[in-house]
Each structure stands twice: as C-alpha cells, then as structure tokens.
C-alpha cells in the first residue's frame, strides 16, 4: 500500500492516468458490444468512432467545433477583461468591496442557463446571445474569486512595500497584482472549464451551428454515436485547453515553482 501524500514518479502517473481511460472504454465496449445495453440508447465505441469520422469528413463538424470554441473564448475573454480589474479593485479597496460584493454574490447564483430565453428575447439568436450566456456565467464568478484572492494578500508583504516607499497605487500595481497573478490565472483556468458547460446549453436552444446544435440534431435522428462523439470532443478540447493553460502558467510564473 502506498503511504498517504507520498509522490509517485512521472512515468507511473502517466500509466495510471491512461489505464483508467482504457478501463472506462473497456467497460463501455463490454456493455454495448456484449449486448447488455440496447443500441438505441447507447452506441458502442466502434460505431461512435465511425459516426465521428463521418461527422468530421462529410458533415463539416470541424466548423461546428470552430464556432463553439470561438464562442467560449469570445465570451470568456470578454468576461475576464471586465471581471479581473473589478475583482482586483474589490480586493484592494474595502469600500468598493462593500459596494459591489452583495450584488455580485447575488448575481453569481443566477444560473446562466436560465438567462437563455431572456437573452434570445433581447439579443436574438445570433452570436451576441451565445457570448452573453458565457459572459453572464463567468463574469461574477471571476470577480468574486479574484477579489477574495487579492483580499488575502499577505499583509506583511504590503507593509514591507510601504516601508520601502511604495504609494497606495504602487502597492496595488507592484504587490497586490504580481502576488496574486498565479492565483488569478488559476481562477481563469477553472472558470474557463465552467464556460464550456454554458456554451453547450446556449447552443441547445435556438442555434444553427456548434457542437451543442449538432448534439440536438443527432437526438432527432437517434444517432447516439454522434451525440457521444460530440460530448467526447468537448471533453478532449477541455483537456487540451487545461493543459495549455497550465503550461502557460508554469512559464509565466517560474517563481512559484522555484
């Protein structure tokens, strides 16, 4: 038995990680190909791959993927650009926090998906509406989490900066922001993951393109292979973006690992 908290080698890590995927697929293949589950409800892995290949080569699924990625990134960037500065301000200035925090805490619990019908009314079914769903889903979360991170900055570092001659403004610029930059990047990585769930919801209703739209279309045809392929594609893209984000954070903040 391994000891609690004992680290494992990189090689073991990769092998263990992959073996769960293998196990998962094996169980799925066993259940479907072995005839334990009706094909109408759950396609087997082989059909799924065939359907996926057809989607990619014949039905232009690539452009659906592109559209969805664009929506996620667009809405998420929009939310980040507004939320990160607001969060920093809230964390740094307590009066600002007292002013905004109650509202943001309330708004955070408004489910983004519940806004879809309303947003269709306001913004139609164009791209704007999709971006807004993601924006609403992400912006309040980012604001609050960034504010908490900045508010928890080590006081002694702030005091040290003051005794070295920092002004109030430069404490924000040269201590609060760099001290919390890695954590803010971590927050963005987390929220980006959530943004993926909002975009699919937005695409399930009133959409003519995107991964979510393809899934809804496939439902009408009972093409479970296609639906599952769509879901897996989302997972894979999420995994890739997560990986890229982590690599970027590592290279941006070497002092964290030093």
């Amino acid at each position: 038995m391994p000891r609690p908290l004992e680290p494992v080698s990189q090689g073991t890590r990769v092998v263990l990680g992959i073996s769960f995927f293998v196990l998962f697929f094996a169980a799925w293949a066993f259940a479907t190909l072995g005839g334990f589950v009706s094909r109408t409800f759950l396609a087997d892995p082989i059909t799924m791959v065939q359907d996926g290949w057809l989607l990619l080569t014949r039905f232009g699924f690539m452009s659906d993927i592109g559209v969805t990625v664009w929506r996620v990134v667009g809405g998420f960037v929009l939310a980040s650009v507004i939320a990160v500065p607001l969060g920093i301000m809230m964390g740094a200035y307590k009066s600002f926090e007292a002013f905004l925090e109650p509202f943001v805490s309330f708004a955070r619990y408004l489910p983004a998906s519940a806004f879809v019908p309303l947003l269709i009314l306001w913004a139609g079914i164009g791209e704007m509406q999709k971006l807004l769903v993601i924006f609403i889903g992400s912006v309040f979360q980012i604001i609050l989490m960034v504010a908490v991170a900045v508010g928890n900055t080590r006081r002694d570092l702030v005091e040290a900066a003051y005794t070295l001659g920092s002004s109030d403004r430069s404490v924000v610029r040269r201590v609060l922001i760099p001290a919390n930059a890695p954590e803010i990047a971590e927050i963005l990585r987390l929220v980006l993951g959530w943004a993926w769930t909002y975009v699919i919801v937005a695409e399930l209703i009133g959409s003519s393109s995107g991964i979510g739209h393809m899934i809804i279309d496939s439902q009408a045809l009972l093409a479970t292979g296609q639906m599952i392929f769509g879901i897996i594609v989302i997972g894979v893209i999420g995994l890739i973006s997560d990986f890229l984000f982590k690599a970027l954070n590592r290279s941006l903040f070497p002092w964290r690992l030093a």
Partner: peptide
Amino acid sequence: PGADRGMVFQSYTLFPWLTIAENIAYG
C-alpha cells in the same frame, strides 16, 4: 510609513515573485 525608515521584519517578507536583485532594487 515611508522610505526614510527602513524596516526588517521577523517573518520573511521578500517579494517571492522578484529575484534577489529585484528585491534589493524595489525601493
């Protein structure tokens, strides 16, 4: 507080995101 009174604390208060040279150059 001001730069005319330098302070060294009991806890370690170097800025972790700055190198040693950058820490010394902060003020």
